[in-house]
Structures are given as C-alpha cells and as structure tokens.
Amino acid sequence: MMESELTLPINSNRDHLLGPQKAPVTLLEYGDYECPYCKQANLIVANTVQQFGNKMRFAFRNFPLSQIHPHAQHAAEAAECAGAQNKFWEMHDILYENQQALEDENLLEYAKVLELDMSRFQDDFYNHTFALRVRQDFLSGIRSGVNGTPTFYINGMRYNDSWDQETLTKTLRDIINKNV
C-alpha cells in the first residue's frame, strides 16, 4: 500500500507550532475552519496537547475546502493575520468556537476581541497578505496526500486511523514510548 509522506517538512520559521522542538512526536493537522469534523478534532487535539505536555509538538496548516465551505479561505487568512501579531492560536480557537459565524465582519470582531492592532489587521486582511501562504499550505497538503479534513500526520507520515481521543492517544503514546 502507498504510504503518504509529508512533502513540506515542518519548519519553525513558517509553521504554527505548539510544544518543544525536540519533542519525540510531532502531530500535524491539515484543517479547515468551517469543517465540523475539524471543530471536533480541535477539542481532541487540545486535550491531547495538554495530556502529553512537552512530549509532543503540534502544528496546524490550512486546508480550506472553499467549494463546500465558502467562509473557510477568509477564516484561514484571518488566522494568519492574527499570527502575524503573535495571536495565531488564540484566533484559531475563536474561529472553531464560533464556526457558525465566519463572515468577514465576524472575523474583524474576533480580531478586536484579541486586541490586535486593527489597522494592521485590516490592511493584511483586505489586501489578502496571507492568501499565498494559505495556498502554499493547501498545495503542500495535496502533495502530501491530504485526503479530506482533518488529515493528520504523525512524524511526517499520514495517519490513516481514527482520530477519536482513545485511538489517537494510544498511537501517540506508543510512539513516545518507543522513542524514549
């Protein structure tokens, strides 16, 4: 069977990362802010990150399915705009928590809630400063065999199993134990 491998390695200069660089396991998610399954996955990932502490690193890349999720692209760009002001993860969580309200005006409101520099945020948002970045995430996903949202990679290999809490935790624990 063909194994799908991550073609664009995790890079701390471009990727949004949680956890230490030397963690034995890196979990990467390709996700879409308007995808209900990604919303579920976000809670599971949050638990997992908390559970494993400094033993794991988490990374998120954008994979907006714009044909079925008309707000996903702008939401992804908004997260990147917040990222430029060091508030990526805060925006990331707000977007999933408010998945039913992802109009442009909502996105601007969330930026205000996060007390971002609004003139900079609006400049970046309306000029689509990060559209190319989102596109690069998306294309890297296609090349790596992303097959829907969410798609996870564990240490650079596509994870094909279920991402329910129990299975994901067990898989990560097994890898961590092997590497210790």
Binding site: D32, C35, P36, Y37, C38, F63, L65, Q67, I68, H69, V146, N147, G148, T149
Partner: peptide
C-alpha cells in the same frame, strides 16, 4: 465526511 474524495 467533509472533503471526501470527490470534494477533494
């Protein structure tokens, strides 16, 4: 699933 094969 979202983003199943045909959507992808």
């Amino acid at each position: 699933v979202c983003g199943d094969e045909v959507s992808l």
